[in-house]
Design a protein around this nucleic acid. Structure first.
Lengths: 233, 233
DNA sequence: CGGTGCCTTGAGAATTGTCAACCGCTGTGG
DNA sequence: CCACAGCGGTTGACAATTCTCAAGGCACCG
């Protein structure tokens, strides 16, 4: 499906296209195609040749690295409006990770070969991409800091709060994380095991901090969870 | 000290200035000043206003984040030719970490305000910076993967090998890491304690893998160390 | 030659992982 | 429509890794 026919309101106002001319934006979209991604389906896979780069319009993806011995690590989540899979811009020929839809999603895709001409015509694109990647680098450093210095409970608290920020939806009960998340997912985000995550969250449940069930997490008392994440004890 | 007087051979051939015109390069250097940084001295400090960005000409820096409770994490090392402290390009007003010289070093510095005009005149700069930051993001993800899935000994092995790659110098004995590194430094790179690092390296010493002493590490058998880092024992 | 900084090593404790068993949804096919 | 398979979750017991606390030694600098 060509992207021209897309609702412009989806596109305008995305960070990556900030301060671009109307007709330049049209030209950018010219080269894109839109694609439906059912939940559980990969958009691209680790090690595959990086033929395309992407922009998420709707839904949620997780980006996962798999170690040689099969363990998985969730590198980050992709939210609507994010660009991803821009391996070519980083001078890589293959994707360093796999991206999988966690809910039914809609993405734009451009051929990787389009990146250089696009940037040539719209230098602001490189600047915006630099800011985006820079933000991700800082997020990554924050996670390194957490993994290095915090114990499991605080890491899990940070991970849950990050999910709340990215996909929190207010309900009567509290803040619901608006896509399916398993204990295993949280474990892969925090460098621990699903068993430990389960124990931690059971304890929180007993204290009235969260309510959770199958693939579902509701934060009942964000304030106390923040306190737990930030301070010791 | 103005940068104009610098030896051009130091500058030419740096990744960040790849495919720039001669006179553009001159203009870039116009705005820079050179600065001597004695070992142990910070170039900039975490939380300070980001007035400048930098390029390392000679020496080695470590980039450190300090947690609220005083623990330190080594985020990365800066090698000659690297740009660093480009907080403004990432739309930050302050530095997210402290950078400290580990040996006497020489750096160029530009006022942060110069970044935007420089990029406007030399769009390739943004592209090159994007690649650099992209590479760092991948390095950071690799570390996240290690911290999440590997146990201490392998993490330390990876850290030492990374140092070898960045600053290894062949000697008769083996490969010397060419700047002072303490057990504490390695601990801050791998998310463990100096005690555990000391034990691990003592064991390696006994097996003839490395020779190490005060602030000094020589890898005697890189091949076996790689094997240790990659495979599960 | 004294002091400070870096390194080593031991003993015991704490966190977290491993192994195992079991529960209860959920959704699918007969 | 019901039964059942399979996935996700929970919990206990135990083991292992790693940290904490403590003491002491050695090398380098002033």
């Amino acid at each position: 499906m060509p992207a021209r026919s897309l609702d412009r309101s989806l596109i305008r106002g995305l960070d990556i296209f900030a301060s671009m001319q109307e007709d330049d934006l049209e030209a950018v979209l010219e080269g894109a195609s839109a694609r439906q991604v059912p939940a559980g389906t990969p958009v691209f896979e680790q090690g595959a040749e990086a033929r395309e780069f992407f922009l998420l319009l709707h839904g949620h993806l997780k980006v996962v690295q798999t170690t040689p011995d099969g363990q998985q690590v969730v590198v980050r989540h992709v939210n609507p409006g994010d660009i991803y899979g821009i391996a070519k811009a980083l001078r890589r020929t293959d994707y360093p990770a796999t991206s999988i839809a966690v809910v039914d999603s809609l993405t734009l895709a451009w051929p990787s070969s389009r990146w250089d001409p696009l940037v040539a015509r719209n230098p602001v694109l490189a600047t915006n991409a630099l800011q985006t990647v820079g933000q991700r680098l800082q997020d990554a450093h924050a996670r390194i800091r957490e993994l290095s210095t915090e114990e499991v409970e605080r890491r899990v608290a940070h991970a849950v709060l990050r999910l709340v920020q990215q996909a929190g939806r207010k309900t009567e009960e509290g803040v619901l994380i608006d896509f399916p998340v398993t204990r295993q997912d949280i474990a892969e985000m925090t460098g621990t095991t699903l068993h430990t995550v389960s124990r931690v969250m059971s304890a929180w449940e007993a204290k009235g901090l969260v309510a959770s069930g199958r693939k579902r997490i509701v934060v009942l008392d964000p304030h106390r969870l923040v306190a737990l994440a930030d301070a010791a004890e």
